[in-house]
Each structure stands twice: as C-alpha cells, then as structure tokens.
Design a protein around this nucleic acid. Structure first.
Lengths: 224, 224
DNA sequence: ACGGTTGTGTCAAAGTTATGTCCATGTGAT
DNA sequence: ATCACATGGACATAACTTTGACACAACCGT
C-alpha cells in the first residue's frame, strides 16, 4: 500500500483527510508541525508529502526546502494562502502541486495519486510496475502475481503501452498507432483480439486491463 | 508555446507588453477593443486573457462577462482603475487577477505565467470539478460526493459537456449536437432520458443538474 | 530447403450493455 | 384551470465487445 505523510496543524482536517485517503487505499502518517514531519521523514520513505504552510515550529516552505535537499518525493502544498507570491515561492522551492483551502477531498486524492503515479518514474531502472504486473523493459520480461509470464512481441508492446499510460483510457485507434504503427492498415478488432490473449497470458492479473465501453481499454492498479 | 490574448487600446503599451512576453516565450495576440477581442475569441483558444477595462466599443467588464459565459480561461484585468469598487466588480465577474497601471512588466509576466500554470494544473491532472462532482478525463472516471460513480458512455459524455459549460443553459439541440453528434437523427427526448439516468447515477449530486423550463439543462455548483 | 511451431489478423456468431422510443403520469407557467 | 412541457417505467433493439475458428505468415531447428 502506498503511504503518504500529511503535515497539518488543524486536528479536524487531519482526521478527515486521513479517513478519506485510507478509505481509498492510501496509508497516511500524520504530523502536527514541521519539526514532527522531519522526525518522521528520518525513518520513513513516503510516496508523497502533503504540506500545510502555516504551522508552528517550522512552516511548510521550510520542510519543503529540507526535503528537497535529499529527495525528489512529490510534494503538494495544502494551504489557505492563495496569493501568487506564495504559489510562486512554493513552485520555486520545487513543490509539485499547490491546493488552496477549501478544497474537495476527491480532488486532493486524485492529485495525490497522480503525483505518486508520476513519481514512479522508475522506468529508468528498467522496471515498470502496476498492481500485480511488473515489466522489465531491459529484458522485455514480464511477471504478474509473482510468476513469470511469457508474452508474444505484440502482447509485450501492447502491455508496455498500457503500462506507460496507466489509468488512462486508450482508444483502439491510439493503440493501433502506438503499438502497431501508423501504417497499419488492418481492423480495429485486431486490438480486441490481442487484448484477449494478453489477458489470458496474465491470468488473474489480466483483470487489471479494463474495457471501457465505447472508448477503449485502460490498465488499472485495481486491488481486486 | 502558450498563447495569450492582450486587449488594450493604447498602441504603445500593446507593443511593449507583446515584445516583453514573446521575449519570454509567451505568444501574444492583440486586440484594440472589446469587439475585436470577441472576434478573435470566436476562432482561437487562449491560455489566458489580459483585459484592459477602459476601451471603446465594449469595455473589459463586458468582454469578461461574455467570456465567462462559456469558458473558464484565466482572465487578468489590467487597468488604471484602482478603486476598490472596480476591483470587486472584476472579481464578481469571475476574473482571476487584477493589476493596476502603472505596473512592472516582470510582475505582469509572473502573474500571467502563474495563472496559466494553475489552469494547466487541473487540466494536466485531467481533473474537472464542479461542486461535489469530479471528472477524471484521462481515465473517464467520475466521482461525486466522495464516492466513485460508474457512468455509461453517453452519460459520461453528457456530463463532460455540462461540466465544460457549467452555469450555462444548454438547449436540447445543443446537447444533441455536441454529445450525440450532428448526424443524430433521433428525438429531443433522448436528452431527457439520459439526463434522468445521469441524475440517478450521481445520486445526491444529481441535483446540481438543473432543468430550465422551456430552455434546456444546466449544471450548477450550488450546494443545496 | 523443409516441416513444425508460434504469432497474428480476419471474420462471423454469441453475448453484453447501453440507448432510444413510446406513452402514461407529473409539474410548472400563465 | 389549462396547456405545454418534463419525468418515469417498460421494452425493443441497436451498438459494442468477446469468443472461437480459421488461414496465413514468420520463425526455427534440423
């Protein structure tokens, strides 16, 4: 499960966000102020940090500066300060997003998840992960649910494309362009058929590939 | 490259701003008055609009009002009117910022870029929000009041259209054109039926979709 | 070069899901 | 009160996806 750190001095808000996030499968450690946050950061790795700005002891800008000295973990500011200057200061310090109160929980969650997803830029290392599926792009290897999967070339390329655009709906036309190439003359149905064999090859993890009626396909991390 | 629209009747100022902005990588279309601005807006999408207030033909407030009827593009007023009343009027019309002359070019540029970045922020994340409803346009997902909602393709497209034109009344004919496509041969009632299922799917948030008697439908942020 | 194996696309039938139409029943405007 | 208009339920079917069968092409070891 992903884990984030929420730094916020308002107790009620802390609780609300924590509950909402954990209800959506996002673990949430809490800190009351900047000092406490840095303590926790000593011993833990988080997938993202949500930072209030106005806090006792050490404010959000300070925490951001300290964190950025040694990490590129996604940081999202979460604050009542809506002024341009504060925003620019935040971005200048290397934050990844900026949400002003009051905000919708759904938005906050979506933004956080988006940041985490993007943060997974582990592709450099040659590894792409999504839910139970892992792709080793160096060796063109695939594993799902712990077992190695043998994929045909087309299956592999298709899955790679889906993995690179996880969560996004891709139309059959888009997939044909990206995987088959722009010059492919064939039928849309070709995509369906390959999706089928890919699903079959992936076994249980094949359920992560969702059909989006009238739109296309997408890959989800999906718990179930 | 980002493109903005500058509406300003003073020729010298127009030139100065345009030069400064393009030197910093921001394309700049020019309009001499409100009427010209609306003309350009017919055919172009801008990342932001800079509006003088005192102009011949149609003043900045008028342009702002017209634009806000159909778009949430960031608008920045740019004027010699420094009075509080004018500022409040600008904000009431839905502008995003307000700069009084004389101003520093650097500040104007920073503010503009911040506005564009913010506008991008939610768009990049693929998020559209209105009241309790959130649409993830990348994944074609919808949530309302914190819970995920499953929408059929038509429902989704219809809601997307309403969200993009929030606050505006859309006639059934308009909705048929935009959502069903210009070639749809069927009955107006089709819209009603889909609105109904959309409302049902959205649960409580369905109340944000208002029926406008004899005119059509519109989406409102309104809580109640 | 040769047969066997594997990968891939096409096609049509079967299975799903979504969508429009119809008509009876509400609801708001004047 | 009346009329025009919006809503709700039932149903048929249109639109779309999955599945299975098949044919052909590419690949591989001999």
């Amino acid at each position: 499960m992903e884990h984030i750190l929420l730094v916020e001095d308002e107790p009620r808000l802390r609780g609300i966000v924590r509950d909402y996030f954990s209800a959506h499968g996002l673990g949430c450690d809490l800190a009351r102020d900047g000092a406490e946050a840095l303590d926790l950061l000593q011993d833990h790795d988080y997938d993202s940090i949500l930072l209030d700005i106005l806090m006792p002891n050490l404010d959000g800008f300070g925490v951001c500066r300290a964190v950025r000295k040694k990490s590129t973990v996604p940081i999202l500011f979460l604050t009542a300060l809506g002024g341009e200057e504060d925003m620019l200061r935040g971005y200048a310090l290397g934050c990844d997003d900026y949400v002003t109160k009051p905000f919708s929980l759904a938005v906050l969650l979506a933004k956080t998840q988006a940041l985490i997803r993007r943060g997974r830029g582990t592709e450099d290392a040659g590894l792409l992960c999504c839910g139970a599926i892992t792709l080793n792009t160096r060796g063109r290897l695939c594993s799902a649910g712990g077992r190695d999967i043998k994929l045909s070339p087309r299956e592999y390329d298709l899955l790679l494309c889906l993995m690179r655009n996880r969560g996004q709906v891709l139309t059959r036309a888009q997939l044909l362009d990206k995987v088959w190439g722009l010059d492919f003359e064939g039928d849309d149905r070709a995509v369906d058929v390959r999706i089928r064999s890919l699903r079959a090859a992936l076994g249980d993890a094949g359920k992560q590939i969702k059909t989006v009626f009238k739109a296309g396909y997408k890959l989800e991390e999906g718990e179930a």
